[in-house]
Design a protein around this nucleic acid. Structure first.
Length: 372
RNA sequence: GGGUGGAUGACAGAGCGGUCAAUUGUACCAGACUGUAAAUCUGGCGCCUUCGGGCUACGGGGGUUCGAAUCCCUCUCCACCCA
């Protein structure tokens, strides 16, 4: 079973094809985020037009609403959201981070070896997420790429805590692996035309020894004893790199971890990022990324435009950020970006796009396209 | 013609003797956003300022009071009711 076929490599940069049960994706690729089973503002046709080949759904959010049982009844997430391409589901590990440490008790997360106790922020109802539960939900959703449940420690984070955390993430990963392959084996018939892929997540905060330790632990599990193929994980993710740490640390982490990972398996940098971060990561040998920046920032009126007047990502500061809601664009009848040939830039002016904000509940096509 | 209730910052709308340059929402201005509790959040939003404060303001005018957006008189306009 070939998951990632490398087509071309230049320096550390990789170009390839990732095979999933719902189709092949060209790497490197970006995953637009569809947390609750929809990429905000875009329907599947528009998503494809924009070049998306895969989307990312979230286990935690879909568990709470509408529930994985309901999605399964609907025929799986693909059918439910009318997206036939591949779907990657995040495990809920990020929510361990993003919902933890909040002051209100209502949404507090309580962590233990067994799992994470969550509360639905909207009504306070308790939920207990475990590695097994996360995989169970992702399988029910019909995900193509399943992520292990991890703990994403915050930044700053002491070495002591990061070490304990990464060790638990390894044990959780082990449990995910065992549960996943048991379920896949139990349902051979269902997966005869291809099973979902299972990715582990390297943690270890900003510490070199811990990052290396995390990668080694995950790679050196006794996979056969855990009931899966000896080849182990279908892909490797690097997590905990977009939680407020200095930019340079992210580069270091890639430098440390990537050489350890097997060549023929996809590498996924979770939660990134800004344009220059993506460029750097691709050049370092990363195959996949996801981030809320394109969808969220655009929804908030923030746009990236080419800075130098040329599309040249090799220039140091190749883009700049503008806020389309700024008063200075009121009578600016030029396109959002002169050097862009996308639908929005071809057809609409800055003044017009500005005018459409913030009546967002009636956003017409011009804005919907622009906000990916 | 008679009666009643109103007029507050761009708009809506609180306040009903001092702690009011005036709650709040919207609009407006600026910023933030990295595996989405985010169509969210933060800050600003009368004028001037050496950032201590100063000035002008709650329909117009006049009064009462140490003190008025708040009480009284009057004018203007608006709404509703009766003829």
């Amino acid at each position: 079973m070939i998951m990632l076929k490398l087509v071309k490599g230049q320096n550390k940069k990789r170009i390839g094809r990732l095979h999933t049960k719902s189709g092949v994706i060209n790497t490197p690729f970006f995953l637009p985020i569809a947390t609750k089973g929809a990429v905000k503002n875009l329907n599947p046709e528009e998503l494809r037009e924009v070049g998306a080949e895969i989307v990312l759904g979230n286990t935690y959010h879909l568990w709470l609403r509408p529930g994985h049982g309901l999605v399964k009844k609907a025929g799986g997430l693909h059918k439910f959201m009318n997206w036939s391409g591949p779907i990657l589901t995040d495990s809920g590990g990020y929510q361990v981070f993003s919902l933890a440490g909040r002051r209100d008790n209502r949404s507090k997360v309580i962590l233990s070896e067994k799992g994470a106790e969550f509360r639905d922020p909207s009504d306070g109802k308790k939920y207990f997420m475990t590695p097994e539960k996360s995989v169970e939900i992702q399988l029910a959703l019909g995900s193509d790429i399943i992520m292990v449940l991890d703990e994403c420690p915050p930044y700053p984070c002491s070495g002591e805590y990061a070490k304990k955390s990464l060790e638990m993430t390894t044990r959780w990963a082990e449990r995910c692996f065992r549960y996943f392959h048991r379920e896949v084996a139990k349902n051979k018939n269902k997966y005869k035309n291809g099973r979902p892929l299972l990715f582990c997540i390297v943690q270890g905060s900003i510490y070199k020894d811990l990052r290396l330790e995390s990668a080694k632990q995950l790679m050196n599990l006794d996979f056969s004893a855990l009931g899966g193929p000896a080849s182990g994980w279908d892909g490797y993710a690097i997590g905990g790199v977009a939680v407020g740490e200095p930019r340079e640390k992210m580069k270091k982490i890639l430098e440390w971890v990537l050489p350890l990972l097997p060549e023929g398996k996809p590498r996924y940098l979770m939660g990134l990022g800004r344009p220059e971060e993506i460029v750097h990561a691709v050049n370092s040998g990363i195959d996949m990324f996801d981030c809320v920046i394109p969808t969220r920032n655009a929804r908030h009126g923030s746009v990236f435009v080419w800075k130098t007047g040329k599309k040249n990502i090799k220039t140091k500061n190749f883009y700049r950020n503008i806020n389309i809601t700024n008063h200075k664009f009121k009578k600016d009848f030029s396109p959002l970006d002169r050097n862009c040939d996308c639908y929005t830039c071809r057809n609409y002016t800055r003044a017009y796009l500005r005018h459409l904000f913030p009546s967002a509940n009636r956003w017409p096509a011009a804005l919907r396209q622009f906000t990916i």
